[in-house]
Design a binder for these strands. Structure first.
Lengths: 247, 247
DNA sequence: CACTCCTGAACCATTACTAAACCATTAGGA
DNA sequence: TCCTAATGGTTTAGTAATGGTTCAGGAGTG
């Protein structure tokens, strides 16, 4: 360990490790499919505890840079350019004439946030055109509940419901199904951990302000403002969850 | 700690053996028809257990590299021009096991077109950033096929494939899965009738021109133009399918 | 003090590999 | 034809590697 580096929090720790490991991947010394050394080796190699190392690996996993498997090891994920192309074609299974089943395999939080950024701004534009008084009331109700929530878990529940209610107000059942499915993912343990780690009281306050501006614009039928506010909100959420995005 | 000499599982074992044996075949030291040594010899030669060796042989068999017969032995398979290897066998990167299930119930053509108008323009923007040469080639191939198609059914098939290929080039597997599932809906009877009724030769000619402009913009990495052209195309398709839209 | 981040350690669950025995089919010679 | 060895196929128990989880405690910060 380099003794020149005074180990302040900003210089060491999870975030610094993420950048270090990411640079290994970026410069090609760790190519797709490369098996990372076991955590118990990396721990010594980087001079940090296993807990800290694992936090960094978790961040890399969330960003879709690596995949990890119990008993197998951690591997550098295929680069975006190498992503399998053909899987989509055989991933659907028709179960009846009017219903299809889609299995979504291991969508990373990064991918999910990207899709949310596609779907939600579009949905709120439609919602601004089509929402009725009941829809607006339901949305405002979610907003109020989230603001009155004490527990973080409560806030997150009503936060999720708010976004669902907005998409539902688009009156497009297909869009709603897509979004609701994605939303399921956010209730999985992995995603919950990610949220809990990133949700500081200060951020929660900002989110609530954004929510209010979004809902107000929607109630005013101001599609353009609603879209922009929602987009900004999602960009901030993504940045808080996954760090700065560079694609 | 010297990690070079630590025989990690990925470095030895089944996967490494596959590559080792495959190189023997590739460099011509084992030609087609060559009888491999018995498993009980190879086991010692490679220093692994028979179970592990057999796992590797199974992978090679699945890839069509060797054939095996009880009581006779294992033989190098005749070389084949096409290698229809399943990607799962080709890639040693384990994919995450968790999966979500999406059910789509009887989405109407109007809803589907609306979602396409949301998803595809966004996808082509991402694709303009991320598509590699192979993606562009695949997309151009669909375009060519659709232009050379005689039958209406052929044209529609390659039309569909073209749009799937564009979304696939966005490298977001979640977006890809969502879109491919939706696309499957378009093969249902109601949708087919709608398409056949609306697709006149004149319209087909216009679609092809639009397709070409879209693909050219994508190949030029011109995200804005690609997005706008694709949007115009989808608006025209929707209008032709469903009549003037007044939402 | 309260809070956050890190360390160190123990233990759990899943996976890969080893080792050994036994089964089923085939080839080849008595 | 019949017997035997060779060979791939199968099963099972055990060991080790590896990521996942939890907890107690220390160190710096506001």
């Amino acid at each position: 360990m380099d003794t020149r580096n005074i180990r302040t929090r900003a210089a060491t720790g999870a975030n610094a490790l993420v950048q270090l490991i990411e640079s290994n991947i970026a410069d090609g010394s760790w190519t797709a499919g490369f098996k990372l050394p076991p955590e118990r080796d990396l721990e010594k190699q980087f001079g940090v505890s296993r807990n800290t190392l694992r936090k960094s690996l978790k961040l890399l996993q969330d960003k879709g840079r690596i995949v990890r498997h119990v008993g197998r090891g951690s591997f550098v994920a295929p680069a975006r350019q190498d992503l399998p192309q053909s899987r989509a074609l055989d991933s659907f299974v028709p179960v009846s004439a009017d219903s299809l089943v889609l299995r979504i395999h291991g969508a990373s939080p990064a991918e999910i946030m990207e899709v949310r950024l596609v779907v939600e701004p579009a949905a709120i534009e439609l919602a601004a055109l089509r929402a009725n008084a009941g829809d607006v009331r339901r949305i405002r109700d979610c907003l109020t509940q989230s603001e009155q929530a004490g527990e973080i878990a409560d806030f997150e529940h009503w936060d999720g419901q708010l976004h669902v209610a907005i998409v539902a107000a688009s009156k497009n059942s297909l869009l709603m199904d897509l979004y609701a499915t994605m939303n399921e993912t956010r209730n999985q343990p992995e995603w919950l951990r990610l949220k809990h780690r990133s949700l500081t009281p200060e951020r929660r306050r900002i989110y609530q302000e954004q929510h209010r501006r979004i809902v107000d614009a929607l109630a005013d039928r101001d599609a353009v403002t609603a879209r922009n506010e929602l987009r900004d909100h999602l960009l901030l959420v993504r940045s808080n969850l996954l760090g700065p995005v560079n694609s």
